[in-house]
Design a protein around this nucleic acid. Structure first.
Lengths: 227, 227
DNA sequence: GCTTGATTCATACGGTTGTATGAATCATAC
DNA sequence: GTATGATTCATACAACCGTATGAATCAAGC
């Protein structure tokens, strides 16, 4: 009957509020943007007191960062794991460009499906790239730089002989293509005349990979293409 | 001496305030986003009275639409003109994919250079794709639909035999790549390790065209590529 | 010179924002 | 049981938001 020593039945109560705030914030941010979402909307949706957000996080901006990092960190970790596998399989051979792209994309896309409730992160990530941009620069060294540092050489290994600058351009465009798909407006449906379902990530992944690979090969002059 | 009949020396005074508001709004919207920019910031920057914005435009939302349409309309018109030329030159032959992409991209990119003061529109356009999204849907039929209606068949003619759905996916990704470049964070510099200059549109255009063409060909199975 | 219509002005409104404060509540340790 | 430290609570704050109003200002026509 002693509840104090129940170590597995964790006293989840403590973090419950904090997580509910994060969940609601994530949902609302992805739907309406950072600036357009108020703390009151978040606390109402989360059914917690307004002051709780300033107690657990210090400010709105810190909350935004916390929301972003909570999801970004495991995704980036997964990316590096997958890249490890790709590199291990390749041995000394050049890497498969498609495989490297897959390692970069898969963790984001599967985050879209997992956790029924929290499938809205990708939109938020897409949003991250265009909103005011201050936090983007602020979370970059913490969250993106390590991934970039690993993937940049990987892309070079996958496209031997290509100019580094051209690869950079291609990576930039690819990030744009991904982010735009993730942000996922109604645009995809319009542009495919209703034939494509934006939520069908299984359909999106191979297409994104093919598109990016084709684009990267073309921009780096890797084309085995004649004309 | 009669000023009233001076038809060429237009009484520009009238529209001066209106245009100053539009200019400042365009600049601030592109820098901080729509929701994060207040009318007071705009009117202060434009050095006009706060009430002027509600006099010339009716509301903030109408102002946003006016800002977007003012630039979008001539750009889209230019796109259609260029597409006309491409189609005229091709005669009955299939269109050059690169030429079609150029017709789509050139007007936006040259808007980036023209008008020294107003080179910030492209960022705004990139922003347009991800912000809350309501106005996006609202201006779509007015500004985008006509362009889409012309370019969709053009892409089909440039990639004969390709599935319509695949072309749609490719167009979607391409719009993302373009928008992300236009939104132009510091990311490009980072990702190319300082080798690429985001403001160098002359360098960007051929690379965007090449990337998109490669991506579109790959996704539609147009590849003359073996592997 | 006076009238008229269009534009600019200073100012006010109610509502919302992010943040801060101090009291109430809770689970735990003694 | 009571003291303690961590949360939650209701509430207040100044600042700002988008919008509206009515008077001042202006240029043009008679």
């Amino acid at each position: 009957m002693n509840q104090a020593f129940d170590t597995d039945e964790a006293p989840i109560r403590v973090t419950e509020t904090k997580d509910r705030i994060l969940d609601s914030a994530e949902k609302l941010f992805s739907e309406h943007g950072f600036a357009a979402t108020s703390l009151r909307q978040i606390t109402t949706e989360a059914a917690v007191n307004l002051a709780a957000v300033n107690y657990h996080f210090q400010s709105k901006e810190s909350l935004i960062l916390a929301v972003l990092l909570r999801k970004l960190e495991p995704i980036n970790q997964r990316r590096l794991e997958l890249l490890d596998e790709v590199e291990a399989e390749a041995g000394d051979d050049p890497l498969s460009l498609e495989a490297v792209l897959g390692a970069f994309l898969l963790p984001v896309l599967e985050a879209k499906d997992s956790r029924v409730q929290l499938c809205n992160f990708p939109r938020l990530m897409g949003r991250m790239y265009t909103e005011p941009g201050d936090w983007m620069l602020r979370i970059f060294p913490q969250a993106f730089a390590p991934v970039l540092a690993r993937f940049q050489p990987a892309f070079r290994r996958a496209m031997p002989g290509a100019e580094i600058e051209e690869i950079g351009w291609g990576m930039h465009f690819s990030i744009g293509a991904m982010a735009h798909y993730l942000a996922g407006g109604a645009l995809l449906k319009t542009v495919t005349m209703g034939m494509a379902d934006p939520s069908d990530t299984a359909a999106a992944l191979p297409r994104l990979v093919a598109y990016m690979a084709g684009g990267l090969r073309a921009i780096t002059g890797q084309k085995e293409i004649s004309q």
